[in-house]
């Protein structure tokens, strides 16, 4: 019989929270492979690599314009890989683990996307002059604020700032959407306790 680590109340086998004090019950025994944070890294690295590559390659990266598809898919891939390494399979993967591996996948993916994107950015910077970039922006957003346009052009002239800004942006956005992907995968893959505790 499991008991709450905080108040000592008895817990059902499937309980994720203590109904007496609200403390998280956890699903893995202390010291078990599930509780080892390192076990999240391998799936997250693979998933992050895939989502980062897909999000950086020109044309392919447009998949993210469909509800951040590559980021959400990357989080789901991370959760699937993590579940495969668990004794119970991905059908028993807790939502919290799906979320955590999703966040890690997004973090790695953001870094990978930025690194892979560097040569493409450099290529674009050498191949196009500021006038061409301005023309392209004005085509995409005809009513753009002149000040914003000026700032974007300044950004494009200093690749390092552009890369750093991309890194921060990618890491935050990919982590958010990959977390959602990881959670949704864990939910539809058969998180048995999800409905019962609701």
């Amino acid at each position: 019989m499991r008991t709450c680590s905080q108040c000592g109340a008895r817990l059902a086998d499937s309980a994720q929270y203590c109904m007496q004090c609200g403390t998280a019950a956890g699903t893995s025994a202390p010291g078990s492979p599930e509780s080892d944070t390192a076990s999240y890294f391998r799936p997250a690295l693979i998933a992050g690599g895939v989502l980062g590559a897909l999000s950086a390659i020109p044309i392919v990266q447009w998949g993210n314009c469909i509800c951040c598809m590559w980021a959400v898919g990357g989080g789901a891939l991370g959760a699937w890989l993590l579940g495969r390494e668990r004794p119970g399979g991905w059908a028993t993967l807790p939502l919290g683990d799906g979320a955590f591996v999703g966040v890690l996948s997004g973090l790695f993916g953001g870094v990978v996307a930025t690194i892979i994107g560097i040569p493409f950015r450099l290529l674009a910077a050498f191949a196009m002059d500021p006038a061409e970039i301005e023309e392209l922006i004005l085509e995409a957003a005809p009513g753009i604020d002149p000040e914003l346009l000026e700032r974007i052009l300044q950004f494009s002239e200093s690749p390092l700032i552009f890369v750093l800004a991309s890194l921060v942006f990618n890491v935050i956005l990919f982590s958010l959407f990959a977390m959602v992907g990881g959670i949704l995968f864990a939910a539809i893959a058969g998180n048995k306790g999800a409905d019962k505790t609701g």
């Binding site: 919290g96 683990d97 959670i183």
Partner: peptide, 9 residues
């Protein structure tokens, strides 16, 4: 729920 579980964990 996933976010809550993750933060609690």
């Amino acid at each position: 729920r996933g976010l809550r579980e993750m933060l609690d964990r």
